[in-house]
Design a protein around this nucleic acid. Structure first.
Lengths: 329, 329
DNA sequence: ATGAAAGCGCTAACAG
DNA sequence: CTGTTAGCGCTTTCAT
């Protein structure tokens, strides 16, 4: 079964490439029904498939979009990938994915590769928005949607989640119950969203006149999560903390593990609230309340915005703010 | 900052495209050092990047490979995706991913699209290996690696996991403890791997002279997991089952949920073993033993085999069998 | 209603 | 050591 090109078909049928191309692209108006039928029949018979690479070269458009995140196997990014795919389902676009491993170097390499491949747009959770590559894309008005992380100094198209109010609301629930000693555990807060969550935590407590000590706000070293988390937890428990807020699910998961292995006596007492939901929090011991990022909306807005940008790359930068969802268990 | 092509560079520098192309592709041998330097400097200055689409058209090779699975947000497929990416890291290849949703129709559409895009190879967890598209790829010797599912009638390149022995071994542990009444819960077993796991279960019990009734082997309807799982569990518990083996993690997770919500009295008694590991099984109540598929090896073998096939597509079909790992908790 | 031909950006065989 | 040129498969303008 050889591979047919438009030229092959044209030759075999004794017509011109133009005619074949017209028929294939439904610019039929000017083609006689007989010719059209002959072409269509032949195409079906030999199972002709257009070569999208050639088309892409000609049209300067590949109908692919890039999706670049720190780690595609992280459920948060994985679920968004899935939703993006679904959004793209009835468009001609297909997704190229990449994981950066939080390495700026790797991010830059992949972006370059994606750009060389002429992707039509990019959805990116960047580990450094200030990097040359990212800044260059923005300057050149390359269709780019940033999510999950934000840089205040950089005006661009963002999809961000407003953590402030929901964090305040969720903590308020505890405070209403009479809980006073609330700790915070975060992974090294080197990206904007984590910092914001920590700020919101502090602000909420201040605003609701709940005292807290700086020792109750602790950071887990991201290069040694297990050990570091253990140390921080020990510190928190020694202060008789009643409840812990986690700036993301990584530390919370680790904490659940330590509770089971090393702090069983705490399980009945401690209350947990994590930013970023995972279904398993429902089954955990103790159950974990969470503030879930709206995966569907993030994916939906990102795609919608990106397709718009691909159509009109010069449209003004826009920040889309989404609300997370509190899940009480 | 305009976009430069090789032709532009050649013109600006008063040399020919060939010269530029040679320099860029390190076929420098015949180019004078001065010319080379001039070109290299200019290229760096204007930030020239080759257009891979044009290159792909010319060379008939896109340096992309497809990864098509039922659901990229499923941790099993997500983790494999990640590992594949890592394997591909120091090759020129990039991954295009897709989710089929277990729909043959969707699978076929995406495969067509990938083929039109001239992907150089495909790693596929097919929902129907007997389908026309898949069979056509095999016939045409398109570089294809199948994993996770197998069709006995189809000779092709497979990466499969040998569930038999480890299932037998893991069940043996229970039997040695004196456990006699073991049930099985599976999602509708419409793919080869699930069927094999169920067979292994039966064979093991028979071989070890452990009686079981057909009512202890139950199927959860995949279109209504929650409700159906509840019904099947009720049936199992009414038979005073002591332990349950799950053919994959989906049903096991659902069961953990039901145990917590509807069968709390069973939590202390029941033993669980699931095929497919997730880290959370460690934290679950009760803890879940599991038989983990060797994610790294699957990804590694798949990539290795595929790259080989891309180089020599006519090489004979090969079935690579990997061993899972028992995790006791 | 149909065809000829140019051109997208690149590589490489061939010529000089 | 460097340039000319054809061609990858497609779309599209301009002729006929």
């Amino acid at each position: 079964m050889k591979k047919y090109s438009i030229a092959d078909i044209a030759k075999e049928l004794g017509v011109s490439k133009t005619t074949v191309s017209f028929v294939l692209n439904k610019r039929d108006k000017s083609i006689s029904p007989q010719t059209r039928k002959r072409i269509l029949d032949f195409v079906k018979k030999v199972g002709y498939k257009p070569n999208s690479v050639a088309k892409a070269l000609k049209e300067g458009k590949t109908n692919t979009i890039g999706y670049l995140v720190p780690d595609i196997s992280n459920p948060f990014y994985g679920n968004i990938a899935r939703k993006i795919e679904q959004q793209l389902d009835d468009t001609p676009y297909q997704l190229i994915i990449g994981s950066t491993d939080e390495s700026e170097q790797k991010e830059s390499e992949i972006i370059h590769s994606l750009l060389d491949r002429q992707v039509d747009g990019l959805i990116l959770a960047s580990c450094n928005i200030k990097s040359d590559v990212v800044q260059a894309m923005i300057t050149k008005q390359f269709p780019l949607v940033l999510f999950d992380r934000m840089d205040q100094d950089t005006s661009a198209n963002y999809i961000i989640v407003n953590s402030r109010e929901k964090i305040s609301e969720a903590l308020g629930l505890w405070i209403d119950e009479g809980i006073k000693k609330i700790g915070l555990l975060s992974i090294t807060p080197d990206i904007s969203s984590l910092k914001e969550r920590i700020e919101s935590f502090k602000d909420t407590l201040t605003q609701k006149s709940i005292d807290y000590k700086d020792e109750w706000i602790r950071t887990v070293d991201k290069d040694d999560i297990k050990e570091s988390c253990y140390i921080q937890l020990k510190a928190l428990f020694s202060e008789d903390i009643e409840a812990i807020f986690f700036s993301n699910n990584l530390v919370c998961i680790e904490t659940l593990w330590h509770l089971k292995k090393n702090f069983t006596e705490q399980i009945q007492k401690i209350k947990l609230l994590s930013f970023d939901n995972i279904d398993f929090f429902d089954l955990a011991n103790p159950p974990v309340n969470s503030i879930a990022q709206p995966i569907n909306e993030i994916a939906g807005s990102a795609v919608k915005r990106l397709l718009k940008l691909i159509k009109s790359p010069e449209s003004a930068a826009e920040v889309i703010t989404l609300e997370p969802i509190i899940i009480i268990r």
